[in-house]
Design a protein around this nucleic acid. Structure first.
Lengths: 342, 342
DNA sequence: TTGAAAGCGCTAACAT
DNA sequence: ATGTTAGCGCTTTCAA
């Protein structure tokens, strides 16, 4: 991991503050002040120092700076996946809110493994970030311990139904499941099926399913059929999922897809088989992806404010770092999109 | 940016190596060796140190470690956008290849601005990363200067048609445009249109367009019509783009969409308007997104190996850091997918 | 197998 | 407005 030497030895010993100071005929601390635009500097000195920096091509060393000042501009973000536009959307929101204030995101991906999450949190904390964001409220005991003791703001993203470690920004997946069931029942559908994916790993999808089933149950109805496709959710998975479901339970009237990727696949299956939506079959999804709304028949689904979750999470961190009070739970809510498929 | 103090002052002064050393009754350097699993350690000592670490909840400080060893495990990755699954795919490939070797990605997003790219590169280099990855071969002069002098491996992602700063991993967008034109002409289409987006910012899309037009030209044909939608590409943009194009030039036989997002929107437009694909109109896209292949009629398009670009970029970095030779250009190529829309 | 001494490059705190 | 001094927490010699 030694990396001082260059590709072809073009780079000599690293250029440091000291070199700039020598070149500009000032002390090192003066250069430091110029770089950080902090404290009073004479216009004349400023010019000399900046010229020196440019002349010798100095790039400040934040590793040293952070060590000296016991602070960094890093915001650690740990996401379950990047294979679905949902989390990039959140990341985008985070980036847009914190980057203007000089913070940068350091991203790790867990592929929905809580063990990988623990590893990522450890590694991240060793960089002494200014804040940490993780996804969801479920973590390993060890992870929670690390996060509780790390001394910086911790945001849990996406979900709010539980006890946050510090700050939670998201929505209640329980309520989504519940209300989705109520919508379908309210619209008169009775023979209702469900297509889902890897529930062991995607814990929030699992919460939606649970509360959906409970709500059906409480209304005196049982699920007419269910297909859980193995692995990650995808359009293709939704297509085959629905195909299987209809084969097993041909009389189903409506299907809840645990997310839009799969729901869109379901819509494609129907197009292909000439199943008319929503007359012959109703489809409802979750997320409100753009593409679902651009379908010939826009998808009926639940709009989640993903970018907003990221942006608010960033704002919470900024507020907390400025000493302001931050609510421990921020519910961004969700909205039903009355599309044309249910 | 001071962050030593905790939310409610629960955290005392940071736990350091020294604390572990005291607890385990060894010297600090011994603890350091245990943490890095480097150098010889007696089994007995190892056990004591690890127990001490766990007991007092020590989290190593890589900021200090990196400063002392002049090396970090950070790989800086600068991407134009996360709003499209293409770049998350690349990032995924990078992550999967470097993470097992202990490197972590530090991501910045530029929204296709070369000035933002310059800022991101500066900020990144100040963290003394082990390697840097940027997107494309076009950069500001200042950015190139920084990257040339930074002394660590630099990978330019996605494009290979040009002079790399150090290492380029990608494909020739020129050839994509050319061959796309040849395909359409070879299939007998003559009245050919194009739907594109923000060409000033997405320079690779612009290259595809240029070479597409050139190839038509060389074959003695002119573009029958073109719509450049403002802003970012999206499914919705492709839908309206095609709608406009057909209004202006109703007799068009085939349309080249500069990427799949827009092409899928085009397909949706046709579904909606009852335009039969590919008889009445042919559509060809670019990227080979999963969703395009899950459409009732799979999209005819060009498969790009995005994940592979990321994975190979990571491998190049690993190789270079181990002192192995690395080719300055790696062409991952591309493949036509013969779908059902052209 | 373990340790002591000497920094890495920067900034906080206190002069001047 | 600028400088001096003393570290930040770790790793790299070199020595035992």
């Amino acid at each position: 991991m030694a990396q001082r030497k260059a590709r072809k030895g073009q780079t000599g010993p690293a250029v440091t503050l000291t070199d700039v100071a020598r070149e500009a005929r000032v002390s090192r601390i003066t250069v430091s002040r110029v770089i950080r635009r902090q404290g009073p500097i004479a216009a004349e000195t400023l010019k000399r120092v900046e010229a020196a920096i440019r002349k010798i091509g100095y790039v400040p060393n934040r590793v040293a700076g952070s060590l000296a000042s016991a602070g960094s501009d890093l915001v650690g973000v740990i996401l379950p996946s990047l294979g679905n536009i949902v989390f990039p959307d959140v990341l985008n929101g985070i980036h847009d809110s914190v980057a203007p204030h000089g913070y940068r995101a350091m991203v790790s991906v867990t592929e929905y493994s809580l063990e990988a999450e623990y590893q990522a949190v450890s590694a991240l904390l060793s960089w002494r970030p200014a804040a940490v964001m993780v996804t969801g409220l479920e973590h390993k005991k060890e992870t929670i311990k690390l996060l509780r003791n790390c001394g910086v703001p911790v945001v849990e993203l996406m979900d709010i139904a539980g006890e946050p470690i510090d700050i939670a920004v998201g929505m209640s997946h329980q309520r989504v499941g519940e209300e989705t069931a109520q919508r379908l029942l309210g619209a008169g559908y009775r023979r209702i099926g469900l297509v889902g994916h890897d529930l062991v790993r995607d814990l929030r999808a699992s919460k939606r399913r649970e509360s959906f089933l409970n709500a059906l149950d409480e209304a005196g109805h049982a699920l007419a059929g269910e297909v859980i496709v193995p692995g990650a959710s995808s359009v293709a998975a939704g297509r085959t999922g629905l195909s299987q479901l209809l084969k097993l339970h041909p009389k189903i009237e409506a299907v809840y897809f645990l997310n839009d990727d799969m729901a869109i696949g379901g819509v494609f299956h129907c197009m292909n088989q000439g199943v008319r939506l929503p007359d012959q079959l109703a489809i409802i999804g979750f997320n409100g992806l753009d593409i679902g709304q651009a379908l010939p028949q826009p998808l009926t689904t639940v709009l989640t404010r993903r970018r907003e979750i990221g942006a608010l999470a960033g704002q919470c961190v900024l507020d907390r770092l400025s000493g302001r009070e931050v609510p421990s739970i921020t519910d961004v809510g969700f909205d039903f999109i009355k599309g044309a498929t249910a």
